[in-house]
Design a protein around this nucleic acid. Structure first.
Length: 291
DNA sequence: CTTGGGTCCTGTGCGC
DNA sequence: TGCGCACAGGACCCAA
């Protein structure tokens, strides 16, 4: 389920663990995730110091001290678990308060890394839709995962005017248009449903037929939806740290997503949330307040 | 070029 | 009890 807010939450959780840390003992348990991992992947990470941890849309970008960027995409079920190694179990503050766990690998623990600060980072991905790659930092914008992405929805380059421009003439439903990462980068099924609900736009509305003022409203709702989700993630991050060390997944109450048959929460709306299938995936919306 | 559908992967939950 | 199937969904891939 990781969309932009979940990835941002994972990034913030990993920041104190990875930034400035040296990667040691990298264990790679399979040759591929979604795609083959780079040649000598573990060896190229081993011994490197992480200088920074950024994010572009749903991809995390760890810049290494040899001019290479380590790209991490969580796909559908990618999870990051952090714990303390045996060596540093007594100094939990060194790794941000993560508890010690046995290094016994779980069934889908594909990558395991220990840092010089005594943190053990496990990448677990049941369905292996996730991916990792290594790419020269100086040319990171040219990486195929990033090159065609639209603007960051929380950045200065995104606005209602951008939606007006990019959706002009588009014959697809607005739902599909917002899932297109070339239009705006980082939205997935959940937050598209939420933003459309908040903006009062029916997911089947043809993108190019929506009036400019409504697209300005939509852009604002996209920003607010993502910002609130990141805040919700941040507020639960501390709890996860002390609980099981899993980063990025948090309880969040949605207004439309997953609420089929339930009452719409909009003020004075008596509608119920419906579910339809668009391009193979579920859209949740209120037929009364979304037009 | 755009647009829509198929596909990958595994676990879960439902109906019969 | 057990089986088959729909579903979860990010993003590539290809056909029209």
């Amino acid at each position: 389920m990781p969309e932009l807010p979940e990835v941002e939450t994972v990034r913030r959780g990993l920041l104190p663990v990875l930034e400035g840390a040296r990667l040691e003992r990298v264990v790679q348990r399979r040759a591929d995730l979604r795609w083959p991992l780079p040649e000598r992947f573990a060896a190229r990470l081993e011994g490197r110091r992480v200088e920074g941890l950024g994010r572009r849309a749903k991809t995390m970008l760890a810049t290494l001290d040899d001019g290479i960027t380590w790209l991490i995409h969580l796909g559908m079920t990618g999870r990051v678990l952090v714990s303390a190694t045996e060596a540093k179990a007594e100094a939990l503050e060194m790794v941000g308060g993560f508890v010690h766990r046995t290094p016994e690998p779980g069934p889908h623990d594909h990558i395991q890394i220990e840092t010089d600060r005594g943190a053990r980072i496990v990448y677990n991905d049941v369905r292996r839709f996730g991916a990792m790659d290594l790419w020269p930092s100086a040319e990171i914008a040219d990486h195929p995962w990033l090159a065609k992405l639209g603007p960051e929805p929380l950045g200065n380059a995104f606005s209602g005017a951008v939606l007006v421009e990019r959706l002009a003439g588009k014959a697809t439903p607005i739902k599909a248009a917002l899932l297109d990462q070339r239009v705006v980068a980082g939205l997935g099924n959940i937050y598209v449903c939420e933003a459309l609900h908040r903006a009062g736009i029916h997911p089947r509305r043809i993108a190019g037929s929506i009036a400019a003022p409504r697209l300005h409203r939509l852009a604002a709702e996209i920003r607010d939806t993502l910002t609130e989700a990141i805040e919700a993630g941040g507020s639960t991050l501390r709890d996860y740290r002390h609980a099981d060390g899993e980063l990025g997944y948090f309880q969040h109450s949605f207004r439309a997503y997953g609420r089929e048959g339930e009452a719409c929460r909009c003020e004075d709306c008596t509608g119920r949330i419906r579910r339809i299938v668009q391009s193979g995936r579920s859209s949740f919306y209120c037929s009364r307040c979304q037009r």
